[in-house]
Design a protein around this nucleic acid. Structure first.
Lengths: 74, 74
DNA sequence: AATTTTGCGGTCATATATTACCGCAATTCA
DNA sequence: TGAATTGCGGTAATATATGACCGCAAAATT
């Protein structure tokens, strides 16, 4: 049970991701083109809908051309 | 399709996790006591058996008393 | 030597991430 | 204004992470 609440965490991660993507001026599809992720999923991540896996964090870093650790700056 | 290979990533993450835990001189059960994770799962993570989620990375940081970003230093 | 701690492998149920799509409404661009 | 881009929600199938356990063999402690 323990319907764990990761919503806030996911929200913060998503906000940060969007901020970084916006700063780089990249579209969802552009990021997706640089890594092994679907653009609609990246959208879901930005909107706090997913508690993503380690490999996905790494892929996002690749897609954005940044250090994955920057995605945890929040 | 695309039997994605995250093994190397998981291995590196696990190694780093163990290194940090050893430096802190904490047992698996001690880390687990400080966060919401099962000690046997932490063992599995250290042995590269899991592609853990964002929330788990955060929990590990809590359990070890470190910045979660340190877990991605590899 | 007896007791405790530790790492770890295994299990089963449940939740959820991921893939690989589709299509739309709104925005941007030529 | 017509065409392309963009963000995003939805879906169905599949894979996998997690929680909560158990118990063991070896190491450490007393």
């Amino acid at each position: 049970m323990s319907k764990k609440n990761h919503q806030e965490l996911q929200d913060k991660f998503g906000e940060n991701l969007r901020k970084i993507r916006d700063q780089k001026g990249l579209s969802l599809r552009a990021v997706a083109a640089n890594c092994d992720l679907d653009d609609s999923n990246i959208s879901k991540i930005e909107n706090g809908k997913l508690n993503i896996q380690l490999s996905t964090i790494i892929e996002l870093g690749k897609g954005l051309g940044i250090d994955p650790r920057d995605l945890l700056n929040f």
